[in-house]
Structure formats: structure tokens, C-alpha cells
């Protein structure tokens, strides 16, 4: 699979990563190379093979419905680049 510049720009946007225009070509080349490499998987017969989600051979463990966490607002906000009045703050979001 060969990716073009426009596709790379689209993926970059989907991943919310700003990529300077002049890097798009080079990046498209690298990504295409990786995709070409991984496409060898097409050779493997996977008919009726279940896709693996986890190697752990166990089922989902559950916890009790008890309040055991939270209640430490200062600790939650202490690393925030911008906070005010107990909130995280970001540029205005328009809905």
C-alpha cells in the first residue's frame, strides 16, 4: 500500500498531530514502506482463526460497587497546564 500526501495529512488530522507540509512527502514514503512490510501477512491463512484480544487466559475480573477513589481534586489538578476555580481550562469550544 502506498500512501499519498493527502492520506497522511488526513491520518495526521485524525490523530491530532500537526505535521508541517514539507514533511508530508517524506512521512508518506516511510509509512508506505512500513505498510508494504506488514502486508506480507496477507500470505497467512487465517480462515476461521479467532483474532486475539489478550494473551491472558482469564475472564474479566470485577470489583465491588464501592467508592474507594477520587475526592482529591488538588492532586487531580496539580499537573494541569491551566486551571481555574477547580476546573481544567481550554480554549473556547464551539458546539
Amino acid at each position: 500500500m502506498s500512501l499519498d500526501k493527502a492520506t497522511v495529512a488526513k491520518i495526521a488530522h485524525l490523530a491530532r498531530i500537526k505535521v508541517p507540509d514539507d514533511e508530508l512527502d517524506h512521512l508518506a514514503g516511510e509509512l508506505s514502506q512500513i505498510l508494504t512490510f506488514v502486508e506480507q501477512l496477507g500470505e497467512v491463512d487465517t480462515q476461521d482463526v479467532p483474532p486475539m484480544t489478550s494473551v491472558a487466559a482469564q475472564t474479566l475480573r470485577r470489583r465491588k460497587d464501592e467508592v474507594t477513589d477520587g475526592g482529591y481534586r488538588d492532586a487531580v489538578l496539580s499537573n494541569g497546564p491551566e486551571t481555574a476555580e477547580g476546573f481544567y481550562v481550554v480554549p473556547k469550544v464551539v458546539e
Partner: peptide, 28 residues
């Protein structure tokens, strides 16, 4: 960045089965 972009691509609509799901099957 390269890996995030590859990862985003292989999960994106239309490519999930060909890449991600295929890889999970080979992993099995």
C-alpha cells in the same frame, strides 16, 4: 509520531479488517 500514524491508519474505517484484525488472527 510515525507509530501513532501507522496505528491510526490500520484502525481506520476500511482498513481495520485488512490490517488490524488480520494481525490479531496471525497473532493467534
Amino acid at each position: 509520531r510515525r507509530r501513532i500514524l501507522i496505528g491510526t491508519y490500520v484502525l481506520s474505517a476500511g482498513y481495520y479488517d485488512a490490517y488490524y484484525n488480520k494481525a490479531r488472527q496471525v497473532r493467534t
